[in-house]
Computed example of a mutant assay.
Amino acid sequence: MTTPAGRRVTMVAALAENRVIGAGGKIPWHLPADFTHFKNTTMGHVLILGRTTHEGIGRPLPGRQTIVLTRDPDWSAEGVRVAADVPSALVLADELLEGAPVDKHVMIGGGGHVYKDAMPYADEQILSEVPMSPEGDAHYPEFSAKRWTEVRREPREGFTVVWWERVFACGGD
């Protein structure tokens, strides 16, 4: 499903074989090439992050308009917009993208709860698959192969980037 302004919603994540994306507020691997991939993929777009993920980064990422999700109505941070939930963040993203070129999208950058809540709104997933199974407390959500199709796979040093597109079917599941 695209946002009302016709923008695409793309989830961007790096996940281990056991779907772990984080441990204790940190990423349980160090892959500079994947950080570069995330930067290049999200640059120039609206980026939605959970509060914990944003605080783990420690600052707004340059070249992106950032919306931080939090249930704390008193929370704020310099250089970001705040929303209470994914639907509210998508409305705010549409406002930020009003008049922007059509190739500007809404990027979902984590963490685990944000990915789970955003999954019903996502049109695309760009997942860096990391060949390890670390312990962790944040996981990328499961998704149905009936609703998603792999459209591209690109091996990189230390990980593989996989592009998934939502399958839009008429009628039942």
Rank of each mutant, 00 (worst) to 15 (best):
R8A: 10
R156M: 12
A84H: 08
P120A: 04
P73H: 02
E17L: 15
M43Y: 15
G44R: 06
G111D: 01
H113T: 14
I126H: 07
D117I: 02
V46W: 00
D103Y: 06
I108S: 00
T42Q: 07
H37C: 12
P87A: 04
Y121M: 03
L47M: 09
R153M: 14
L15I: 15
L31N: 09
P155R: 09
V151S: 13
A118S: 10
E150V: 15
H139E: 10
V102F: 09
A100G: 03
E98I: 02
L47E: 01
R7S: 07
W163F: 13
E95M: 04
P32A: 09
L90E: 00
V106L: 04
E95H: 08
I21P: 03
S128G: 14
G111T: 01
T10V: 14
I126L: 14
A5V: 04
S144T: 13
R81P: 02
P120R: 04
A100F: 05
V151Q: 13
H30E: 15
S133H: 11
T10H: 06
H139A: 11
M11V: 14
R51T: 04
V82P: 02
P73F: 02
T52A: 15
A169F: 13
C170R: 15
S88G: 14
V102P: 08
V80P: 01
A83T: 04
G172S: 12
S88E: 12
V86Q: 00
G50K: 00
Y121F: 12
L47V: 07
G44F: 08
E165M: 15
V161E: 10
K104E: 07
V161H: 08
G6C: 04
R19Q: 10
G24A: 09
D85Y: 03
P134I: 07
A13T: 07
E17W: 13
F35T: 13
E98Y: 05
D117P: 01
V80L: 06
R8N: 13
A5P: 01
C170A: 15
E55S: 06
E142C: 10
A138V: 09
L92H: 00
A16T: 06
V162K: 11
G63E: 11
A169I: 13
P134E: 06
H139Y: 11
G111K: 00
G63H: 09
